[in-house]
Design a protein around this nucleic acid. Structure first.
Lengths: 234, 234
DNA sequence: CGCGAGTTTGAGGCTGTTCAAAGAGGGTGG
DNA sequence: CCACCCTCTTTGAACAGCCTCAAACTCGCG
C-alpha cells in the first residue's frame, strides 16, 4: 500500500524533486481517510491546519456566499492538491470540498512541507504567497460575477479601488489615477453605458462625484451598503 | 537613487528575508524604464523573459479575447509585482500592462530569482507553480464569465470536464463522476434550468446524451464549435 | 412501491445590453 | 487666448437573453 502511494505521489510535480528518504518520511506522516459521497473533507471557515491530496475519486469544492448562494470553485481530480490555505496566506479554508464520488484523500499538517524550507528559501515562499493572494482575488471576482448583479459588482470594484488607490480629499476619497467608465466596465464585466448610468444614479444620491476620468467617493458607508446588497431590498 | 530603491524594495514581502548583499546585487541588475500614459510595458503574447515591479504610477493589465473584446485583469499598484509569467508555468505574457498614469517600473531577467533557489527548494517552486496554474484557470473563468454568453460558458465547462474526467465509451466520452445540472450551473454562474434547457437542445442535435447525474459527450467537435462561438452566427 | 432528489418544460418579467445620438471636458495648435 | 477636435460621458428607447416562478415528470434507491 505504501509503495502504491509512493509511486503515485512521486508522479506528482510537487514532489518530483524530493529524495526517497524525505518522501518516505512524508508518506509516513500522512493520514489517508476515505470519504463517502456527500461527505465533506473539511468545512469552509475551518481552521486550516492540514493540506490535502486526492488519491482517488472526485471532489467538488463549494463556496457559500453570505446570502446562501452556492458556487463550485473547482473540481478536484485525482492527483490534485487541495486545501493548501496556508500557502495562500490564510488560516482558514475558503471552501468546502464535497465528495461527488467515493474518494480517498491523503493529508499532512501544514508544517510537513514548511519545515523543509530553510530561511534561504523565503523568497520562493514569498513569491508563492504573492501568487496565492492573486488567486484569492481572482476567486473573489468569480464569486461576485457568478452571484451578484451589476450594481453590487461595480460597488465592490470601486470600494477596492478606494482601498488600493484612494487619496483622502476634502469631501471624500479620490481614486488616485485616471479611470474611465470603460475601465470600470472591463473590470466588472459590464458595459460603459451601465457604469455611467450607475455613477449618475449614485451621484444624484450624493454617494460619489464623477468627472472625466475621475471619481470621488463621498460616502463610503453607503457605497459599502450597496456592495453588501442594500439595493435589492427597498 | 539606489538607496531609495533599496528601502522601497526592502519593504516588499517578496524581498523581506533577503540579505543586503543579495538585494544590492539584485538591484544592480535591474532595469528601471519609465512608462508614459498609454504605453505598454510589454504585450500580451510576448515571450516572457523578465519579471517586473511597479515602483511608482499605475498600470492596468488588459487581456484581449480572440473576438477582440477587452477586459482588465487587474490593476497594478506601486509595490506590486507583475509579469511573473515564468512562475505561472508560461513562457509568454498572458496580458498587456498599460500605464494609466506616468509610471516607473523595475525589471529583472527571470533567472535573477531562480538562481538563488537550490535544488532543495524545488518543492517550494513546484508548489508555487501549482498555485500559478490554478490562478490561470481562475483567470480563464473570469474572462469567460465577462465576455461570453451562457451557452459558450457551459460548453467550455463541459469540454474541460471531458479533458479532466473523460472516460471513452462506445458512442462518445463519459464524464466519469456523478454530475448534476445544478453542479454545472454552479460552475458556470447560471441556473440549473438554463443548463437543463441547453442540454436538451444539445441532445436533440446529437451533441450530448444526458441522464440522471450523467453526461455523455457524443460530438466533441461540435461542442467545441459551440464553445468557440458558432452559436452566434446563424 | 413509494418517496425524494434530480430533471424537464412553459410562461412571464426584469436586468442589462445594444443601438443611437447628443453633450462636455481638456488638451493642442493656431 | 480662443477655437477646434478627440475622447470620454450621458441619456433615451427598444430589444433579448436569462432568471424567476411554477408545476409536472422520472429515475433510482431503500
Amino acid at each position: 500500500m505504501a509503495d502504491i502511494d509512493r509511486s503515485l505521489v512521486r508522479a506528482l510535480p510537487l514532489f518530483a524533486n524530493m529524495n526517497d528518504t524525505d518522501l518516505d518520511r512524508l508518506l509516513a506522516r500522512a493520514r489517508r481517510p476515505r470519504v463517502v459521497i456527500g461527505e465533506n473533507v473539511f468545512e469552509q471557515g475551518d481552521k486550516a491546519t492540514r493540506f490535502f491530496l486526492l488519491l482517488h475519486g472526485r471532489l467538488k469544492v463549494m463556496q457559500v456566499t453570505p446570502e446562501g448562494q452556492q458556487l463550485i470553485v473547482r473540481v478536484v481530480h485525482p492527483g490534485d492538491l487541495f486545501g493548501f490555505a496556508q500557502a495562500l496566506q490564510r488560516d482558514d479554508y475558503p471552501g468546502t470540498p464535497t465528495a461527488a464520488a467515493e474518494s480517498l484523500v491523503m493529508s499532512w499538517p501544514n508544517e510537513a512541507l514548511v519545515w523543509r524550507w530553510s530561511s534561504r528559501t523565503c523568497t520562493a515562499i514569498n513569491a508563492m504567497r504573492t501568487i496565492g493572494q492573486r488567486l484569492q482575488e481572482a476567486h473573489t471576482r468569480i464569486r461576485e460575477m457568478s452571484t451578484q448583479e451589476v450594481e453590487r459588482r461595480v460597488a465592490h470594484a470601486v470600494l477596492r479601488l478606494v482601498e488600493q488607490a484612494g487619496r483622502p480629499e476634502d469631501g471624500g476619497v479620490r481614486i488616485d489615477f485616471p479611470l474611465t467608465r470603460q475601465d470600470v466596465a472591463e473590470m466588472t464585466g459590464t458595459t460603459l453605458h451601465t457604469v455611467s448610468r450607475l455613477f449618475s444614479a449614485w451621484e444624484s444620491q450624493g454617494i460619489v462625484k464623477g468627472g472625466r476620468q475621475k471619481l470621488l467617493v463621498r460616502d463610503k458607508v453607503r457605497l459599502a451598503a450597496l456592495a453588501d446588497g442594500a439595493g435589492e431590498r427597498g
